[in-house]
Computed example of a mutant assay.
Amino acid sequence: MSVPYAEVIGDPIAQSKSPLIHGFWLAELGVEGRYAHCLVKLDELDEYLERRRSDPDWRGCNVTMPHKLAIMPLLDRIDPLAARIGAVNTVVREADGTLTGYNTDAPGFLEPIREEVDKIHLFRMARVLGTGGAARAIVAALADAKFVVVLAGRDPAKARAMLDELAPGGEHHAIGLDHFADPTDFAFDDREHCFDLVINASPLGMTGQPPLAFDFSHAPPRSVVYDIVTSPLDTGFLQSARAAGFATVDGLAMLIGQADEAFARFFGARPPRDRDAALRALLEK
């Protein structure tokens, strides 16, 4: 008997937590289906898609490095948000066998802060640290949510170009990443009725990477500090933020949020999000 399935592709791929997430949801819902890793090298990507396209049980795949850009010209349709971000992390096989590319990183990033984002604020500002692929999705999501974005990178010119591409016309700012490393005595305005975010969208602080140098005197009062790194889950950046009195969001929240969007497209059901605590316990082992 055929069983619908989806998978995550990349190179390397064994480290992905996606099979644990999707497998947990399938089991909790009692939905017939499976989800697995699939190692696909860059020069095998075209052949992989051609094989899967003809398989009616294949619902699609999540896409990780190094394929998020390379897969785009091989698809039949690109969702407008994915086209704007310039990266695809989810491919869905439609009923007619055509393949559509989506980017679920942007809605996945916003999901854990959605309740606050949906409120009315006098002003919203996000300091985004990093100018890589993940930052592109985050900047697009924040601009659409009416944030003023301060984008910090090693190369401020690259940060400026990214802002001009993804959020043209907004009063956004580009700055060097090292600006935030040293203390400041800047006196912030009253932040009541404002929403401030400080986001590490870089690999800094990840296992095997240098730490992120950020002095929390640069964070306005009542900021929410968000780190998309998942290994380690409790980064030095988040530990320092909590020590300074700030609320924090870890990378697992975004990972689960973006998986939610993909799961619904693959299996036609919403994940049981009332079981998030059990899922997190499984993922943190």
Rank of each mutant, 00 (worst) to 15 (best):
P80K: 06
P80Y: 08
P80I: 15
P80H: 10
L81S: 15
L81R: 15
A82G: 10
A82V: 14
A83T: 07
A83H: 13
A83C: 05
A83Q: 15
A83R: 12
R84F: 03
I85P: 06
I85C: 06
I85M: 08
G86P: 04
G86M: 10
V88K: 04
V88I: 02
V88T: 04
N89L: 09
N89K: 06
T90I: 13
T90S: 13
V91Y: 02
V92T: 14
V92A: 12
R93W: 07
R93K: 14
E94P: 11
E94G: 02
E94K: 10
E94H: 10
A95W: 03
A95P: 01
A95G: 00
D96G: 05
T98C: 09
T98M: 07
T98N: 11
T98D: 01
T98R: 15
T98V: 05
L99H: 02
L99P: 00
T100C: 09
T100W: 03
T100H: 06
T100Y: 01
T100M: 03
T100F: 03
G101V: 10
Y102C: 02
N103F: 13
T104F: 11
T104E: 09
D105S: 04
D105V: 10
D105H: 12
D105K: 05
D105Q: 05
D105E: 10
P107T: 08
G108D: 01
G108H: 07
G108E: 07
F109K: 02
F109P: 09
L110W: 06
L110Q: 00
E111S: 12
E111N: 06
E111G: 03
P112R: 00
P112I: 09
I113Y: 03
I113K: 00
I113D: 04
R114G: 00
R114P: 01
R114C: 01
R114N: 08
E115P: 00
E115L: 01
E116H: 12
V117N: 10
V117I: 15
D118H: 11
D118N: 14
D118T: 04
D118L: 02
D118F: 02
K119V: 07
K119C: 15
I120Y: 02
I120H: 09
I120F: 09
H121M: 09
H121P: 03
L122V: 13
F123M: 05
F123A: 13
R124G: 05
R124Q: 14
